[in-house]
Design a protein around this nucleic acid. Sequence first.
DNA 1: TTGAAAGCGGTACCAA
DNA 2: TTGGTACCGCTTTCAA
Lengths: 338, 338
Amino acid sequence: MSNKPQRRVTLLDVANHAGVSRATASLIVRNSPKVADKTREKVLQSMEELGYVYDRVAANLRSQSSTTIGTIITDIGNTFFSQLLLGVHQEFEKYGYTVLLGTTFDLLKNQDKLISTMLENRVGGIILCPVSASSDETVERVNQLDIPVVLGVRELPNLTCDYVGLDYVAGARVAVEHLIHEKKHERIAFIGGIADSSTWKERMEGYRLAHAEANLDIDPALIVDSSPTREGGLEAVTKVMQQPNPPTAIFCFNDLNAFGATIALRKMGYQLGKDIDIVGFDNIPEAEISYPPLTTVSSFAQQTGVEAANLLHQRISKPNNERQRILLEPELVKRESS
Amino acid sequence: MSNKPQRRVTLLDVANHAGVSRATASLIVRNSPKVADKTREKVLQSMEELGYVYDRVAANLRSQSSTTIGTIITDIGNTFFSQLLLGVHQEFEKYGYTVLLGTTFDLLKNQDKLISTMLENRVGGIILCPVSASSDETVERVNQLDIPVVLGVRELPNLTCDYVGLDYVAGARVAVEHLIHEKKHERIAFIGGIADSSTWKERMEGYRLAHAEANLDIDPALIVDSSPTREGGLEAVTKVMQQPNPPTAIFCFNDLNAFGATIALRKMGYQLGKDIDIVGFDNIPEAEISYPPLTTVSSFAQQTGVEAANLLHQRISKPNNERQRILLEPELVKRESS
DNA sequence: TTGAAAGCGGTACCAA
DNA sequence: TTGGTACCGCTTTCAA
């Protein structure tokens, strides 16, 4: 028993064993109702005995279909994306899709390669969280694809596919308004994130609106971008606090940036939530247990994943439906860091 | 342009367009050296023009090979596993494998189904982090598989496949020794984790050894298991602190449990690292930014993923190599919670 | 170095 | 309700 390199048991083997044709056996694996119960049982019995394993790959090849979908995210190490992925999985499990995972680390060349890989693997659709440097070529390329694509988190211009993301403008605005009105700040820094990206620009817009509404001027020296990581936050806040006239509050591109900033500020001797206020963006699980617990804007990562998966599923089953654009509403979660 | 449901461009189309045979074109997509440079260029040119996309699925079917591998983890929401997954990805990208991801949520029936799905999708191998309730049937089943399996994190008895994990006994021991010798505790609780699982038993053994070595008795009332989550930690610590003679220090099954315990203890009015000491296990990124920063045992999640991927790759290329068992050495990371 | 034809493990289609 | 056969897109094998 268990002497490995045996030939795979095929449907034909099963059919022969059960004394039926391959076509009939095929109907049975596909749960077709138009086959006699007796025959079905006989064949199922044979499958059991022979240890038959369905070859979905061969089936998909012949039927020109696919049961796998590609999910391309930026970084699994970032809880925001792992939460999103959780949502995607959770939803696709229902539909019986399998997920092919790819991570870009925000590099365009990785993204290009991943899209190719996904296509070569005949995925039925792609959930794409585009890298911040996504170029016109990316857009062009995605537009050319014969399979459905749902964009997540970051929207690309001139792209006509479904999209699910957050109203970042509103999210940034509510965060900054909180700092202005409830916390009475007038010099608020905006740190982190890559200034090229649409997600940054939208937060910037929210930041601007909140200032405009309160008749507050914006000091460009208080705006320092960086990579959206802990390290980035650390660097950016260090830079911004070295100003002759430093800010009294800090709005961060995301929670990761905020954590980095927190570490740096604490080292400088600031007491967070007292000497200086800080608010993040995303509400990743760490925000709750960090010190001090981080005030942040929830961007509903898991929910985003769920919606994206749903959109893709709909698009696959009804290719000609009208294009959808889902914008989740952000929510300010007040904790102790501000 | 971009009128969707066009037939897929095949190698035959390319061959015709370039005026060569399909076999020749096939050699070219596989980078065979035995084809004239002129022919190659002509064909590559045609591919470009026609927008050819290689069908890896069909290729794998015909050549009885596979370029995807399955990775089955417990929960993407748990940073330990997302870090592990990060390692796996990072490594497989080098070898050109694509990862099919599955999550069990520690449920046996999910695990069974995922293994089936992976097989049906013709994965070339599986990295399996088994659920804690993995039964003899799981073992039996995995033993029967014709494809390589590498076990991660949790070892299963009587299973002859490669394994990569941590020396949990040593890890628990060093943690508890720290509490006994450096922090002078004599009543140390062990909370969290499922008492059935091998990972729990090994930590328990380390806990026992540290006590034995210090001539300390173990009070069974201080040992409370739970699910390995934040909620579990919260419940378990609540139970253990209600003892008439509560512990003065707490060793947690993992960091998630520790965070839950932290929240509960703080609510009870304890000041961590002062009134009571706590140490976790895993050293997930959150441990560093939690309050207070958590003393914990690093279990090198990402490294585990890297090693597992390597093991699987080796096994796939050399099926008859001797079985390997990699045990990473734990490391105590001292922070402020103890 | 290139080409013709069979086959991987299924499904589609049509006839019986 | 069942069976026969072509075929999905590629690789393999062997001959030219």
